[in-house]
C-alpha cells in the first residue's frame, strides 16, 4: 500500500491506496471527485488533465505516490463558486465551447496552465499547448477563440497555477 499526503484544491488529503494506483483513480474512485475524466488511460487524450504544483499532468498515467507533498488542482478547484468562475471558464461559457462536455475539464486545465505561462498566446502557441487534448466533438475552433478571450479577461485575481499553495502542505 502507498500512503498519500497531498493537497487537493487547497485541502489536505491523507489516504492509502494500492501501490501504483494512478492519480486519476484516486480522484475518481477513492475521493469521488468525478470532474476529472477517464478517456484513454494511456496519456493520449488529455481528458484526465490536472495540475501538479501548477503544471498540467495526465493523471491517468501518473502514479499517485508521486504527488506526496505536492499540490493538486482539479477542475473543481478552479473557481470558488459558479458566480465567480475562472476567466478560462468564463471565456468557455461566452464562446459556448462545450458540446458533449466530456473532454472539457481536461481542455480547461490545459488552457489555464498555458495562460499562466503565456498570458497572450498566439494560435500556433495555443495549438502546441493544446495538442494533447482530444475533443471528439470537434470544439477546437472555439477552444482557440476562448483562449484568446480568456487572455483578454485577464488572468489575475483568480487561482494562479503556481507553487503558491504549497505552503499548505
Amino acid at each position: 500500500m502507498a500512503d498519500l499526503e497531498f493537497t487537493l484544491n487547497g485541502q489536505q488529503q491523507t489516504l492509502s491506496v494500492d501501490d501504483g494506483t494512478p492519480l486519476l483513480w484516486v480522484l475518481r474512485d477513492h475521493l469521488a471527485m468525478t470532474g476529472t475524466k477517464f478517456g484513454c488511460g494511456m496519456g493520449l487524450c488529455g481528458a484526465c488533465t490536472v495540475h501538479l504544483d501548477g503544471s498540467p499532468i495526465r493523471s491517468c498515467s501518473y502514479p499517485a505516490e508521486f504527488v506526496n507533498g505536492k499540490a493538486i488542482t482539479t477542475i473543481e478547484g478552479l473557481a470558488s463558486s459558479d458566480e465567480n468562475l475562472h476567466p478560462v471558464q468564463q471565456a468557455w461559457l461566452e464562446m459556448n465551447v462545450p458540446q458533449c462536455g466530456y473532454c472539457q475539464s481536461g481542455q480547461i486545465m490545459s488552457a489555464v496552465a498555458l495562460l499562466a505561462n503565456n498570458s497572450a498566446p498566439n494560435d500556433a502557441e495555443i495549438d502546441a499547448a493544446m495538442a494533447g487534448n482530444i475533443c471528439r466533438c470537434g470544439t477546437y475552433p472555439r477552444i482557440r477563440k476562448a483562449i484568446h478571450r480568456a487572455s483578454e479577461l485577464a488572468v489575475v485575481q483568480h487561482y494562479q497555477p503556481a507553487n503558491t499553495v504549497k505552503e499548505n502542505v
Binding site: 475524466k37 473543481e76 468562475l85 471558464q89 468557455w92 461559457l93 459556448n96 462545450p98 462536455g101 480547461i108
Partner: peptide, 22 residues
C-alpha cells in the same frame, strides 16, 4: 437565444455523465 444551457455544468466539472454516477 444564444447561450448553451448545459455549458455551466460542463465547464465546472459538475455535469453528471453516466461514468460519474455514485
Amino acid at each position: 437565444h444564444r447561450q448553451r444551457l448545459d455549458a455551466l455544468g460542463k465547464v465546472t466539472g459538475k455535469s453528471e455523465f453516466g461514468i460519474d454516477v455514485q
